[in-house]
Amino acid sequence: MTTIALITGANKGIGFETARLLAATGMTVLIGARDTDRGKNATARLAAEGADARFVPLDVTDAESIAGAAADIDAEFGRLDVLVNNAGITGGLDGDGKPSSTAVSTVREVFETNVFGVVAVTNAMLPLLRRAEAARIVNVSSEVGSFGMMMDPDSPMWPVAAIAYPSSKTALTMVTGMYAKELWDTPIKVNAANPGYCATDLNGHNGFRTAAQGAEVSVRLATLPADGPTGQLWGYRWGGAGKDEYGVLPW
């Protein structure tokens, strides 16, 4: 039976590469995107490479869009095996970018996509995920959401003092933990992924890792074995090398 995976924000960047890598394992990948043209173009690109890819119109900030996507997946497949909540925005910077210069509207906009959107999509898809033999939920978080790393003067995160994006990822990691607790005694595993500082549209392509490298983190968590972990923030560890390059990050 083919594994069905939905990736939000999959028309470009890490989301697109996640879809590509999951398709390479034999999964049917559902390309969630709010922009129809970009979503269809991304789907066509993957299909041209031999992937079983389908476009699913999905705006994670729109309740009607989310309900429609869930209904379409239910009608065609009757279940969902993997959900990768990848869609995210930075919201830009106000003034000098520091908390005291940040508009509440900016924080609210970022949380709408990065936190509330994840909750809305997960809740809508959970009945489908429960029908799978052993579903996996992956929330794409970030090391900048790690309180331990952000408050360590020796950490590469120390210079970052923005509020909207980092705090949204801190909240997302806790959201991940709470879903993991709810689903603790089920076969469903819920984890947060840290792709690392990847060169994508999100940061003006300034990262030192590729989108494909970042996607590998989500793919690992999406394909965990039955004895794999749940409720973790796992991924690339800045400064790590060899066997320490990937692992559990502090919350």
Results as ranks from 00 to 15, higher is better:
G13E: 04
L202P: 15
I163Y: 10
R34Y: 09
L221M: 12
V115A: 04
I7K: 04
F147W: 10
V60N: 08
A69V: 03
Q213P: 11
V84M: 08
A120S: 13
G196Q: 05
A132M: 10
V138K: 01
S168N: 14
T61Q: 01
A42D: 07
E245F: 00
W184R: 15
V60W: 12
N114R: 06
R79C: 06
S101Y: 00
W184S: 13
A132D: 13
I66F: 09
R136M: 13
T36R: 14
L128R: 01
S167A: 04
A162W: 08
P166T: 07
A71P: 00
P159I: 10
E216R: 15
P127V: 12
E49W: 11
G240L: 08
G26M: 13
D52S: 14
V190Y: 07
S141W: 06
E49Q: 15
R220K: 14
V84C: 11
M178T: 08
A10E: 09
V144A: 02
S105L: 12
L21N: 02
G97R: 01
S155L: 02
A193F: 03
T210C: 12
M125D: 05
T200V: 04
P187Q: 09
V219M: 08
G13W: 03
W251E: 05
A162N: 06
S142G: 07
R45D: 08
W251F: 09
T36A: 15
Y197A: 07
E64A: 15
V29Y: 05
L93V: 06
A162R: 11
A19P: 11
G26K: 10
N139V: 02
G228Y: 06
E245L: 11
V82S: 12
D152R: 02
T25F: 13
A69Q: 06
P156I: 05
E143T: 05
D59L: 07
M27G: 07
S168H: 11
T3E: 12
M149T: 02
A5D: 10
Y165L: 09
L30P: 00
M157V: 01
N203Y: 03
R54F: 13
A199D: 08
P250S: 12
T2L: 10
S105C: 03
N11I: 13
I66H: 06
Y236P: 11
G50Y: 10
P57K: 14
A33F: 02
L129T: 04
G196S: 09
V104P: 08
F208I: 13
P127Q: 15
F77V: 04
Y179I: 09
A222V: 04
A120N: 14
S155G: 01
A19W: 11
A5F: 15
Y246H: 14
P195K: 11
Y179Q: 08
V110F: 03
A10S: 13
G239A: 09
A51K: 00
K169R: 12
M149R: 13
W234C: 05
G92Y: 04
S101R: 02
A120H: 11
L221I: 13
D37P: 00
D37W: 00
E112R: 13
V144M: 05
M1I: 02
E143D: 08
H205I: 00
V107S: 04
N86K: 04
G32E: 05
D62M: 05
P187M: 10
